[in-house]
Design a protein around this nucleic acid. Structure first.
Lengths: 241, 241
DNA sequence: TGTAAAAGCGTAAATTTAACGTTTTTCATT
DNA sequence: AATGAAAAACGTTAAATTTACGCTTTTACA
């Protein structure tokens, strides 16, 4: 095992979740005090990430970042783009930061996202914070673009891959699922039609269990079955261009 | 302008086209004769690609590869994945090849694809050849995987992005368009329903022009209008998971 | 004990899909 | 010049799905 960094290759990780009808992204505080404690040279936010080690794969590097934050292995991450423009590290702040880390000033980063269930708690939340994706703070590098790209990738897959269920706890109500669609697509959906559509899917399985106390009438819980989903034969026709 | 290579970063390019109802990918002959002319050490095929130069962006590097082959600038390329596993260069052949090129044995490659119209001729076709994607020769590195990934990316976007039209000449017949769908989706489509669906789209514009001689009855030519396409408001509802 | 509100059920018109039959126009052949 | 073959193109209908609503049920809580 070779623990040396590849000094021009990093992995950046976009962690996402929906909480209180808001799509949130996890950011890490970036702080560098060269001269005095109260005079930070760098003071903003970046995506959690890591340089790739000589004997680590890209995916392994992402896993490591995700595991450190969530405490879980075998996460269902998604690589969506590489960023390697010659000038992507060009502000004074970013250059200072990169040099302080002993890396080259042209770093290629491969970006992954991970969708977390709304009830998921972070294992280690020191130095990190959740931000509304529509109201981001000052970000380093091209991380704002990376976040936008991640979001667009998710939106583009929402109707063809069972991505939404990653936002859900194992057991969820139909209204909770509707909210996830509404937040991601930024629309309101008709609840009655939504229920009809969703309950027609064999892989969204109603459970006996109901949830009481959270709302007026107790609501039935459902779960997503990946097993069943994978058995569904795609109708094949459908040309929707 | 710094013309030195970044010795662990390359770009690989998947050029695709459909010809005679067959999806084809462009490959470059890889040949290395260390000892004797008739005793090649490396003799197989790889995707066209290039190391990234110190002052080139990733996209610029891809453009250069595409331009050299097609003679055209401003191509509508698509970055779809990065490959950077520590062990992705591991066969004796690949190691020999990489060393002969003066690069490191751990190279990260960012992959792009470019879809060409069936009538498009290459500017420079020395050393390259079109192969049926279902019948590929011996390939170097992980390029077979890269090709599969490119194809899957295209298939996943076929119903949400106007990708298919890149396979078409500017003016095309409805039956030609149907063939492209059939080849990509690997199904047969009902011609009458297909026509109805397609002609209902405002951005697929019928021209006055007809093509004679190619078939029995002359066929009307159509074109895809990107302008019109971009004006279409997405219906917004549609939950198709 | 009444009421508000989420949860859930139901209906009907409009639109779209899917599965077909039929006609038109040319080329090729006799 | 007449004829047949085949792609191109138009049309019909039943089934399925979508869309837009109205209405009922069940609990929390005041």
């Amino acid at each position: 095992m070779d623990f040396r960094k590849i000094d021009n290759l990093s992995v950046d990780c976009v962690l996402l979740k929906i909480e209180n009808k808001v799509l949130k992204v996890l950011l890490r505080k970036r702080n560098l005090n060269l001269f005095a404690e109260n005079l930070p040279v760098v003071d903003d936010w970046v995506l959690p990430g890591h340089y790739v080690l000589k004997s680590n794969n890209l995916g392994e590097t992402a896993n490591r970042v995700f595991e450190e934050l969530t405490g879980e292995k075998h996460l269902n991450k998604n690589q969506f783009r590489a960023y390697g423009n010659a000038a992507r590290i060009n502000t004074e702040t970013d250059l200072l930061w990169v040099r302080s880390r002993g890396a080259t000033t042209r770093t290629i980063t491969v970006a992954y996202y991970l969708i977390l269930a709304s009830n998921k708690k972070l294992l280690n939340s020191s130095g990190v914070e959740w931000f509304n994706i529509k109201d981001l703070p000052q970000l380093g590098f091209d991380h704002e673009k990376i976040i936008t790209d991640a979001f667009n990738d998710i939106k583009s897959k929402i109707n063809t891959e069972p991505l939404v269920f990653n936002f859900m706890p194992v057991k969820f109500t139909l209204n909770e699922l509707q909210t996830v669609f509404e937040v991601l697509l930024d629309t309101e959906l008709d609840n009655r039609n939504f229920r009809k559509k969703i309950t027609s899917k064999s892989y969204i399985v109603p459970l006996e269990e109901k949830r009481k106390g959270q709302s007026k009438k107790p609501s039935r819980l459902y779960m997503f079955s990946n097993d069943v989903y994978n058995q569904i034969v795609e109708t094949g026709y459908i040309i929707n261009i």
